[in-house]
Design a protein around this nucleic acid. Structure first.
Length: 298
DNA sequence: GCCCAGGAGTGTG
DNA sequence: CACACTCATGGG
């Protein structure tokens, strides 16, 4: 093929979606925002550019992909009923006050393997560095899918790499964990895990080296689409203390969240995470503990 | 230079 | 059960 390809375009209706909230909140690591408010990133082996206009979401991608619309819709969980999510969560007064400000945030549905490997690297590192580690791995082991962009590497391809080689991608001590996960998991195992009930899946993930409760919950939520999962990191500890006055062990906070947020705890978690990390940085907290907006910075 | 980061594993009280 | 310590390294 010679000459520039315009690429295939698809138009989707995904209720209330906000790409900045959804792709910039830190749940996923490979999307980049352009100055024109477009977002570019890989979905599997397809590089996609997204933009919103009015109530429509436009997706541009590889012209050879006939399933671009389906891929994007699945990835952004277009079938989720956000009105119902918001309604359910708003039985909690704190959520009732702030959830509307983040109604455009959707949990993503990442590829299971990409999610597992990515969050295994996400321990004790900030989001920019996690992105760096992943891009290093992709450019070294992933198939090229566009100029300067590589797909996330397959399990098989990454399994062939030595620990020392992985470490050279800047993984630090995480290299051994990733290598161990590659040994313990294959496509068949991931397929089995898709069929497991939530708790069994969580236990299966916890058996993997370098996977603790927080990573297991992230992978359950963003990789396997279990919306009841509630990952707790330092930001969530702060949010739960500040907004609900609760603190304690992981299991204690987890039980609090399950009782308070139910089956959509994953959405509540991401709402609070986004609020704590992004909104409170600029002094514009959507969620407040009590009173309408009395504790906002004027 | 310093502190922090979407923690987990291991050992100890 | 709760802590304390270590792990390796780039970002802000």
């Amino acid at each position: 093929m010679t000459g520039k390809q315009l690429g295939m375009s698809a138009r989707l209706k995904i209720s209330r979606i906000d790409l900045d909230q959804t792709l910039g909140c830190g749940q996923t690591f490979r999307w980049r925002r352009g100055a024109d408010a477009t977002w570019r990133g890989p979905i599997g082996d397809c590089l996609v550019t997204l933009r919103t206009s009015g109530q429509w979401l436009y997706a541009d991608g590889d012209p050879k992909r006939k399933d671009l619309r389906a891929r994007v819709s699945t990835y952004l969980r277009g079938a989720d009923d956000i009105a119902e999510v918001q309604s359910e969560l708003s039985r909690d007064p704190v959520m009732a006050r702030g959830a509307g400000a983040v109604a455009g945030l959707r949990i993503v549905k990442m590829d299971e393997w990409e999610c597992l490997a990515s969050y295994a690297l996400a321990t004790y590192a900030n989001v920019p560095r996690i992105s760096l580690m992943i891009e290093n791995l992709a450019s070294k082991y992933g198939d090229p899918i566009a100029k300067g962009v590589h797909a996330f590497p397959s399990i098989g391809r990454m399994r062939e790499a030595s620990v020392a080689e992985l470490r050279r991608c800047g993984l630090g001590y995480r290299a051994e964990y990733l290598a161990g996960i590659c040994q313990a998991v294959d496509e068949g195992r991931l397929a089995d895990m898709r069929e497991m009930p939530d708790e069994e899946l969580r236990d299966a993930l916890l058996e993997l080296p370098g996977v603790g409760e927080k990573v297991a919950d992230c992978v359950s939520l963003f990789g396997f689409g279990r919306l009841g999962a509630f990952p707790i990191d330092v930001w969530m500890q702060r949010a739960l203390l500040r907004l609900y006055g609760v603190k304690g062990s992981y299991s204690r906070l987890r039980e609090f969240a399950a009782g308070r947020f139910g089956g959509y705890a994953g959405y509540a978690q991401e709402y609070l995470y986004y609020n704590e990390r992004t909104l409170s940085r600029s002094g514009g907290c959507a969620f407040t503990r009590r009173g309408a907006s009395s504790d906002r910075t004027p």
